[in-house]
Write a protein that binds this DNA or RNA. Structure first.
Lengths: 229, 229
DNA sequence: AACTGTGAAGTTTTTCACAGCC
DNA sequence: GGCTGTGAAAAACTTCACAGTT
């Protein structure tokens, strides 16, 4: 897709392209920005105004070099000899992550997980507003949790379309997740956070992240009782 | 620590060591085994008995080479020309991950997240038995959720010690998490799954994993509205 | 003196590609 | 022909180390 001709790349082409389009920052780096952001916000709450890559790294348990390299993908935010103005860096990170706006989110599934999500204040605090909750179960439809009414799954697609919602969290049983993901995408959802323990099959332009506590427990059981390091 | 002398490594030493102790499989590989296990179990449920690294990779959205390389750290489980006997591979993965036993787990925090955990059947299905729930709130102590009574946080350490529990899930507010982690470690907990959005400071021999939906949403908002690929 | 931003070096992880076996 | 297991190659990621700035 990047090629203009049918021939393979040559150095001149690569150079030409590299002038036109900067390489994208690695996804793994983007995945660390939220943790930087949160640690910096915690520092502000502790009345710290300035920090260094060393201090931040210590707090997060990672190297200062990694923090500097990560940030360097997006700009020059620090001052030599001084460090980073936290307020400014927070602002910049919020721009990079597009958090300088409120994002509307819908929750699919009104079971215990869905309920835990709508009651968790962290989403609102971080700029994610849960605006709807959907379930198939007629018993649950009409219930209200933390002020959010459970609506019928049948109404999901038109409501998401009408309100232009882009983010959804799936908390349904695994066997319903794939079909629901397809409806969501059809409705215009682009980012899905799935609590269902199975890989969703989605087009390349849809982003999916998984929350999977069981896999994480199983990862840790590997190390239990193993004294061989 | 690996060195026997004060001098730096030399090739002979490295070779000597490599005979004595096989290199540990990378942690990133161990982290993928639970997902292989789950996909294989799903295949069994679909009455599939045999698979190949290609079929499994397709299902998981990863390359066949990665699956073969990952598994090769632990043994030779496949047959050339045929593939893998799923039942056998599942059994082997369960041995590797030490899932051929039931693990007792405690939940700290009896709020919405803690409740969602005790009501989620997936833990029991995967061999994790939630045996206790603890909270500071006197209003919550004594409540019962899915048959599990909320106990006083003060009783936590002795109970964990008495029962020899090794795994805990923290669902308390962030500001309590560090202190609780320290108590847990004191009580003998070795593996912690934390839902608190802050890095826990723990000794090297303690394993911690984090569940952090907000970071994952923030990771995805980076890509929203960006058509520059 | 303290700290950033960054090429270069080093390490880890993934992919390639193929000999060997069923 | 189909598939595994694996060295070798490639790519990705992290750390080093230092010039340059405050």
């Amino acid at each position: 897709m990047l090629q203009c001709t049918g021939r393979p790349f040559n150095l001149l082409q690569v150079h030409y392209i590299s002038i036109l389009m900067k390489p994208q920052p690695p996804d793994i780096v983007i995945g660390r920005l939220p943790m930087y952001l949160r640690a910096l916000e915690a520092m502000l709450a502790d009345d710290i105004d300035i920090t260094s890559s060393y201090a931040l790294g210590k707090r997060l348990g990672i190297s200062s070099a990694q923090i500097r390299k990560d940030l360097s993908h997006f700009g020059d935010f620090g001052k030599q000899g001084t460090g980073y103005d936290i307020r400014y860096l927070v602002e910049q990170l919020r721009i990079i992550l597009q958090l300088n706006q409120e994002w509307e989110v819908v929750v699919i599934g009104a079971g215990h997980v869905g309920q835990a999500l709508v009651y968790y204040p962290g989403f609102a605090d971080s700029g994610f507003k849960i605006v709807g909750m959907f379930d198939v179960d007629p018993e649950k439809i009409g219930e209200e949790h933390n002020g959010i009414k459970v609506q019928a799954l049948n109404d999901m697609v038109p409501i998401i379309k009408r309100d232009g919602i882009r983010i959804a969290m799936i908390t349904t049983p695994a066997d319903a997740a794939q079909e629901i993901a397809e409806s969501l995408i059809d409705a215009g959802i682009i980012s899905i956070l799935s609590y269902a323990p199975l890989p969703l099959n989605v087009p390349d332009d849809i982003h999916v992240q998984y929350v999977d506590p069981i896999s994480k427990l199983q990862h840790m059981t590997y190390y239990l009782n193993r004294e061989d390091d």
